[in-house]
C-alpha cells in the first residue's frame, strides 16, 4: 500500500468513529434526562463532529481528488465506513450511552496522547487540539459510570448490563491492519498494541470505583476495519445522509 493511500484511510477511520459516535450523541438533543445533560451530550457531540472534520479535511487534502469533507461524510456507503463497531451501537438508556462514551473516551485520550508524537504534522496538530477536549469528555463519562454503578440497585444493574453488552466491542478499538503497518514504520501511526494495557488499567480502575464487574472473557466482535458493520450503521447513515443525497449541493 502506498503511503498516501494509507494516510487517507487512516484519517478516515478516526474521522468516521468520531462522526458516528458524535451523531449518536446528537440524537439525545432534546431528550436528555435533565437539561444539564442534554447540553453536555450535545457539547461533546459538537467536539466530536469537529474532530472528525479535522480528519476529513486532511484526508481530502491528502487524496487530492477534489472531494470535500462533506463528500467524505455524506456520500460514502456503509461498507466504505471504517468507524469501530462500538461507536455505532444504539444509545439505549442514558447509562448505556455513558458507558459507550466512557469506553470510547478512554481510548481517545490514550490514542491522541501518542498521535501527538506523529511525524505527520497535520495529524499531530489534530491530536494536540483534540486531546484537551477528549480528556474533558472522559472526566464527564467516568463520573457518570461511577455515579450510576455505585448508585441505586436499579442503576447499578442497568449499567452493569450495558457494560456486558458493550464489552465485546472493546477489542476492536485496538485492531491493526496493513494501513497501520505501513504508517508505523515511518512513525506516523500509533502502535495500538502499546496503549491496550494502559487502556485496560484505566478502565478497570474506574469500573472498580463504580463497583462494576469487568466481564469475563467473552466473544469479541470484529469487522469494521473491513467495512463490515452491525445492522445499526445503515439506519444511522440513512438518517444522517438523507438531505445531501436527496438534494445534492443544497445550501441554506
Amino acid at each position: 500500500m502506498e503511503m498516501k493511500e494509507a494516510i487517507f484511510n487512516y484519517c478516515l477511520r478516526y474521522a468516521d468513529s468520531s462522526l458516528i459516535i458524535g451523531h449518536r450523541l446528537s440524537e439525545w438533543c432534546g431528550h436528555g434526562p435533565i437539561l444539564e445533560e442534554d447540553i453536555a451530550m450535545t457539547n461533546v457531540a459538537l467536539d466530536l463532529v469537529g474532530q472528525s472534520r479535522s480528519f476529513y479535511q486532511y484526508a481530502a487534502k491528502v487524496e487530492g481528488k477534489d472531494r470535500t469533507e462533506d463528500d467524505l461524510a455524506y456520500l460514502r456507503d456503509e461498507r466504505e465506513y471504517r468507524n469501530t463497531l462500538l461507536t455505532e451501537q444504539p444509545n439505549g438508556d442514558f447509562g448505556q450511552t455513558m458507558m459507550r462514551q466512557f469506553l470510547f473516551d478512554s481510548f481517545q485520550v490514550l490514542f491522541f496522547e501518542k498521535l501527538k508524537e506523529s511525524k505527520d504534522e497535520d495529524m499531530s496538530a489534530i491530536a494536540f487540539k483534540s486531546i484537551k477536549e477528549s480528556k474533558y469528555h472522559l472526566r464527564h463519562s467516568s463520573q457518570w459510570v461511577i455515579r450510576l454503578g455505585d448508585g441505586t440497585e436499579e442503576s447499578h444493574q442497568r449499567i452493569q448490563n450495558s457494560l456486558e453488552d458493550l464489552w465485546r466491542f472493546s477489542d476492536e478499538l485496538f485492531e491493526m491492519n496493513e494501513i497501520d503497518e505501513v504508517l508505523i514504520k515511518d512513525g506516523i501511526a500509533v502502535d495500538l498494541s502499546t496503549i491496550k494495557d494502559h487502556w485496560m488499567q484505566n478502565v478497570v480502575d474506574v469500573l472498580a470505583e463504580a463497583t462494576l464487574n469487568v466481564p469475563e472473557d467473552t466473544f469479541m466482535a470484529t469487522g469494521s476495519r473491513e467495512g463490515k458493520h452491525s445492522e445499526h450503521l445503515g439506519y444511522l447513515l440513512a438518517e444522517m445522509q438523507v438531505l445531501p443525497r436527496t438534494y445534492p449541493g443544497a445550501k441554506w
Binding site: 444539564e36 447540553i39 453536555a40 457539547n43 459538537l46 474533558y136 464527564h140
Partner: peptide
C-alpha cells in the same frame, strides 16, 4: 459546579 458543560463549548455552569 452544577455542570461541566454550559451554553457554549467554552463554558461550564
Amino acid at each position: 459546579c452544577i455542570s461541566q458543560f454550559g451554553s457554549t463549548p467554552c463554558k461550564a455552569q
